[in-house]
Amino acid sequence: MLITDYLNRDCIILDLEAESKEVLIARLADIQFKKHPEINRDEAMAGLLERESILSTAIGNGVAIPHARLVSSRDITVAVGLIRGETDFDAIDNQPVRMIFLVFFPKDNVNLQLRFLARISRLLKQASFNEELLSCQSPQEVIDTFTQFEAQHFH
């Protein structure tokens, strides 16, 4: 599995304002709803908030991966947001968040969810990868950075 395969330039924002966790989640979810009209908005928002209520998806190192498994989702879809500044996301390391990856998974495929989350969380634990992502000047650069690191570290 390659994360790159699920990235889309239309779903990458480089200059998110540092707003509240809830606003940022809603903003990135909206981008997905426009790009993937099959996703049910109510199901998606309820799923995202339910997941956050279990434990924050801000996994440390300035990264948050809010996600939900949806009946209305046919495949993995991703929205990426790089934040201008920093925001409090209830991170497990109590550090502010600078990058958000909002992901929807098909409800009936737990293995797909496991593989995707394992891969992206491992990538985002590399400080050099995170630094490169934060320096990206265009959505295509974000995709290229993923392509480059996945080629280097995962064969």
Binding site: R51, I54, S56, I59, I65, A68, L114, L117, S121
Partner: peptide, 8 residues
């Protein structure tokens, strides 16, 4: 592992 907490 926090990122997988949704699978509880």
């Amino acid at each position: 592992i926090p990122i997988f907490a949704g699978l509880r």
